[in-house]
Computed example of a mutant assay.
Amino acid sequence: MRPDVVRIVIVDDHPIFRSGLSRSLEDEPGFQIVGEGASAADAISLFDQHRPDIVLLDLSMPGGGHSALRVILRRDAAASVIVLTASEHDSDIAQALAEGAKGYVLKGVGVSELVNVISGVAAGDGCSASASTRDGMAGMETVKHQARALANLTPREEQILELVAAGNSNKEVARLLNLQEKTIKHNMTRILQKLKLRNRTEAAIYLREARLKK
């Protein structure tokens, strides 16, 4: 259930964007901005100080958004962090989801879409994304009902899926496992076919949802 007032911290190193976002959300009923920052250190400090319902966290900022996300979730595994990103690269989003982000939004979406994502996460609805980013998550409802499909993966395929969902590129996975990159590509094709997924972002979400059901 969403709290009557959703307390939000915004962390982004672009002052104009952050200020505009803050004003827009403050105009929405039931939202309160309790802190703003511009770096990973600010994000951690503001989280410790306010323990907000939602942290809106830029992935590209001084100190690194991924680093801040990991520290916040070590402080409180139940923390609700929504990442803001200008990147549409699957690996960036997949890594944030694998690290425990509850939602993600591409910068530039309308306020109403962001409000929907925040409300969904605050209500405990699980991983959430704006309508503008849901195209990359097509089939999400199907994914939630495919947990048993993981059992069809070989141990090697499971290992590769774990590494890919953590944000590693095919080349990085190949190096970590001492395999050729084309072998990783072949395995990823088989993994996506077995799980009826389309890309790495869906794979990361799939793995996270399956873990939550355990």
Rank of each mutant, 00 (worst) to 15 (best):
E181G: 07
D58T: 09
G35L: 03
H50G: 09
I205E: 03
F31M: 10
K182N: 13
I118C: 00
L25M: 15
A204W: 01
I54N: 05
G65T: 10
A123V: 12
S119L: 01
L25P: 07
V5D: 06
H186R: 14
A166M: 08
E36K: 10
L97G: 01
I72K: 05
E158G: 14
L163A: 00
E162H: 07
A43C: 00
V109A: 11
T189H: 09
G110N: 15
R148L: 09
R74V: 10
A210M: 08
A166F: 03
A68F: 01
I93M: 06
L84V: 06
D53A: 05
D76V: 05
K196P: 05
I72E: 10
K194P: 07
G120Y: 02
R198V: 01
L153W: 08
L59W: 02
V115M: 04
C127A: 10
A96N: 04
E158I: 13
S87Q: 12
V83P: 03
M188K: 10
R2Q: 13
P52R: 06
L161R: 08
N178I: 00
D12S: 14
Q159H: 10
L84Q: 05
G64P: 02
D53V: 04
R211G: 02
I8L: 15
L114W: 08
I10C: 13
K194C: 15
S45V: 09
P3H: 01
H145W: 13
D12P: 05
G103I: 02
K213A: 11
H186P: 04
E172S: 10
M137Y: 02
M137S: 11
S80C: 12
L97P: 01
G100Q: 06
L114F: 05
H66V: 14
R74S: 09
S128T: 13
L56K: 03
S169Q: 03
R134E: 08
G139P: 02
Q95C: 11
E209C: 11
D76N: 06
L150Y: 13
G108H: 07
K182I: 15
D48R: 15
S39H: 06
Y206K: 11
R156Q: 14
L195T: 03
V105G: 13
L150W: 13
A122F: 01
G108F: 07
D4H: 14
L21K: 04
Q159M: 09
S130A: 15
R190Y: 06
H14M: 06
T183W: 00
R208E: 09
L69D: 04
L106R: 12
S19V: 06
P62V: 04
L197P: 03
P29C: 05
A147P: 00
M61Q: 11
A40K: 03
K185Y: 14
R51L: 13
A79H: 06
N152D: 14
H89T: 10
L84R: 04
L21S: 08
E113S: 13
L192H: 07
R190N: 15
P62T: 05
F47P: 12
M1G: 14
N116F: 06
Q180G: 09
R198K: 05
I160W: 05
Y206D: 05
P15Y: 12
E172K: 09
I82E: 12
K185N: 12
S67F: 08
G108S: 03
K107E: 05
G124W: 12
V5G: 04
S130T: 14
D4L: 14
